[in-house]
Simulated scan of single mutants.
Amino acid sequence: MKKQSSTMSNPLDRRSFMRGGLVAGGAAVMGAGLLNSSKQAVAQDYDSRRGLNRGDAAILRFLAAAELIESDLWTQYAELGGLTPGQKPVEDIPNFTPMNTYQGSLMALDSDGPQYITSNTLDEVSHAEFLNAYLVSKGADPVNLDQFRTLQGSKATGAKNIGRLTNLMHLNVDTSWFTRYRSTTNPDAGATFPQAVTITNRSAIPVTNADFNNPNHIQVIANIAAFHFGSIEAGGSSLYASMSQKVSSAEVLEITLGIGGDEIAHFLEWVDFAGNGCQTPVAPVTDNGLTFPNLFANPGTPEFQPNLIFPVPAEFISPNLPKCATIRPLTDKFAGPKAAVAALTGSGLFTGQSNGFFATLEILADQAEAASRF
Rank of each mutant, 00 (worst) to 15 (best):
D287H: 14
N276R: 08
A225H: 07
D272T: 02
P302V: 02
I327R: 15
G300K: 13
A57R: 08
A140C: 13
A191T: 01
A225G: 14
A196N: 10
A159C: 11
S244C: 02
S242K: 05
D188F: 01
F267A: 03
P187T: 00
Q40V: 08
E251I: 00
T185W: 08
M99V: 03
L80M: 05
L151F: 09
D45W: 05
T331E: 14
L135I: 01
G163E: 09
D272I: 00
G113Y: 06
D211E: 06
G81C: 03
R202C: 08
F130P: 09
G346Q: 15
S238W: 02
V247D: 11
S244E: 14
V312W: 10
F304E: 03
A222W: 09
S347C: 12
A342K: 11
L80A: 11
L239C: 13
Q219H: 06
G26E: 12
S237D: 04
D72L: 04
T256G: 08
F229Y: 14
D262P: 00
T208R: 04
Y77A: 15
V285Q: 10
A368D: 15
N223E: 12
S111Q: 11
P142H: 04
S347M: 07
A335Y: 02
I255Y: 10
N209M: 07
K88N: 13
I317H: 08
Q367S: 05
T175G: 03
T286Y: 13
G82C: 11
F292I: 00
N201P: 03
F292Y: 13
K160V: 00
N201C: 06
P299S: 15
F62W: 12
T150A: 06
A128C: 02
A128N: 04
L22P: 05
S9V: 01
I309K: 08
R149M: 07
S176P: 08
S16K: 15
G230K: 03
V29G: 10
T150S: 06
L135P: 04
R15H: 13
A32F: 14
R149V: 06
P206Y: 13
A222M: 13
T291S: 15
E129W: 12
L171D: 07
N294K: 11
F310A: 14
G258P: 12
G277F: 04
T184D: 12
D45H: 02
G300N: 08
I327T: 15
S231L: 07
K323E: 06
A274F: 04
C278T: 03
H127M: 14
A65H: 10
P215K: 02
S5V: 01
I218V: 13
A78Y: 11
N53V: 01
S238M: 07
D272R: 09
G55M: 07
R15A: 15
E70N: 05
R182N: 09
Y134P: 11
N120K: 00
A66C: 06
T301E: 06
S183R: 04
R328Q: 14
A274T: 01
G31W: 14
H170N: 11
D332N: 06
D45S: 11
F296H: 13
V23Q: 15
G236H: 05
G346H: 10
R182Y: 08
R182K: 11
N307E: 08
Y116G: 09
Y134S: 14
R19G: 09
E315R: 14
F357M: 08
A297T: 04
T84C: 10
S137I: 00
K39E: 12
N288V: 01
G236Y: 02
F296K: 15
L109P: 06
T326K: 13
E254Y: 03
